[in-house]
C-alpha cells in the first residue's frame, strides 16, 4: 500500500470508530457526564465545603483535574477494549485481517478512536465542572500533552485486554479490579502529603499517580510528583504498550490460527 492508501485505510477505521461511539452516545458520552456531576456535587460541594483547602485550592478545584483524568482513562480504555473485542467476537475483525492494511495502521486507527472519545468526554466533563467551580489553565501545553499521552496509553492497554479477552466478562475485569482502584488510589481525591510515608512510597508505584498529578499541574500548577519523571514514565509505558500491541498483531496471537 502506498501512503495515500494507508491514509484512506486509517481514516476508514477512525470514521467507523467515531460513528460507533457517537451512535450510542447515551452509553458512551452521557454516563461520564452524569457520574462526574455526582462526584462534583457530593465530593466537591457537599463534602468538599467541609474539608477546606487542599494544596492551596478549594477541594472542588483540587478534585476537578483528577476527575477529568479519570473520565479520560476509563473512556479511552473502554472504547478500544469493547470495540476491538466486539469485532473479535463477531469475527468482523477478519475484514481488517484479510485486507492489506498494515498492522500499525489498524492499531493507530483503534487508538485514535479511543483518544477522540477520551478527548470528547474530557470536554464534556470540563464543561460540567464549570457549573461547580472556576478553572484556570496553568500550562495548556502540559494539559494537551498529558491528555494525549494518557488517552493513548489507556487505549493501547484496552487493545491488549481485547486481544486476550475470551468473553465480555474478561473486558470488564481490568476496569473493575485494576483501573478503578488504581484511579481512586491515584490521588484524585487527596494529596500524597496526607499519606504516611510508607503509603506515600507505595502510592508512587501506581502509574495513575503520575497521570493525575501531571494533569493537575497543567491545570492548577501544583503536583505531588516531578513533571519530568511523570512524563518520562508515561512515555515509557506508552512505548512499551505500543510495541507489545504490535507484537500481538504481527504474531497474530489470538487473532490468527
Amino acid at each position: 500500500m502506498n501512503s495515500t492508501e494507508k491514509y484512506n485505510a486509517y481514516m476508514t477505521i477512525v470514521r467507523k470508530e467515531v460513528r460507533r461511539y457517537m451512535r450510542i452516545w447515551t452509553q458512551t458520552l452521557l454516563p461520564s457526564a452524569i457520574t462526574m456531576s455526582l462526584y462534583f456535587i457530593i465530593f466537591g460541594s457537599l463534602i468538599g465545603s467541609r474539608i477546606g483547602e487542599m494544596g492551596g485550592f478549594t477541594y472542588m478545584q483540587f478534585v476537578v483535574p483528577g476527575l477529568i483524568m479519570m473520565a479520560i482513562v476509563t473512556n479511552s480504555y473502554a472504547n478500544v477494549v469493547s470495540s476491538f473485542y466486539g469485532a473479535k467476537f463477531n469475527h468482523s475483525v477478519e475484514e481488517l485481517l484479510v485486507s492489506p492494511t498494515p498492522n500499525y495502521i489498524v492499531l493507530l486507527g483503534y487508538v485514535t478512536g479511543g483518544v477522540t472519545r477520551g478527548l470528547l468526554v474530557a470536554i464534556v466533563v470540563t464543561l460540567v465542572s464549570l457549573f461547580f467551580t472556576h478553572l484556570h489553565i496553568h500550562n495548556i501545553w502540559v494539559v494537551i500533552a498529558i491528555v494525549l499521552l494518557t488517552s493513548t496509553l489507556f487505549s493501547l492497554a484496552g487493545f491488549i485486554n481485547a486481544v486476550y479477552a475470551n468473553s465480555f466478562d474478561d473486558i470488564s475485569i481490568v476496569p473493575t479490579f485494576v483501573l478503578t482502584p488504581l484511579t481512586y488510589l491515584g490521588g484524585v481525591f487527596y494529596s500524597m502529603d496526607l499519606l504516611p510515608d510508607f503509603w506515600a512510597a507505595v502510592s508512587r508505584l501506581n502509574p495513575l499517580v503520575y497521570v493525575v498529578n501531571a494533569f493537575r499541574y497543567g491545570v492548577l500548577g501544583v503536583s505531588d510528583v516531578s513533571q519530568g519523571f511523570a512524563f518520562g514514565m508515561l512515555a515509557l509505558f506508552t512505548g512499551v504498550a505500543f510495541f507489545y500491541c504490535m507484537h500481538l498483531l504481527n504474531t497474530g496471537k489470538r487473532l490468527r490460527q
Partner: peptide, 22 residues
C-alpha cells in the same frame, strides 16, 4: 458470517473498500 450485524450493508462494503486503501 463475519460482519458486524449492527452495521448497514452499505457501510460494511464501503468500509471494506477503505481497508483496501480506496
Amino acid at each position: 458470517f463475519n460482519f458486524n450485524i449492527f452495521e448497514k450493508p452499505f457501510d460494511i462494503i464501503a468500509n471494506q473498500g477503505g481497508y483496501y486503501g480506496m
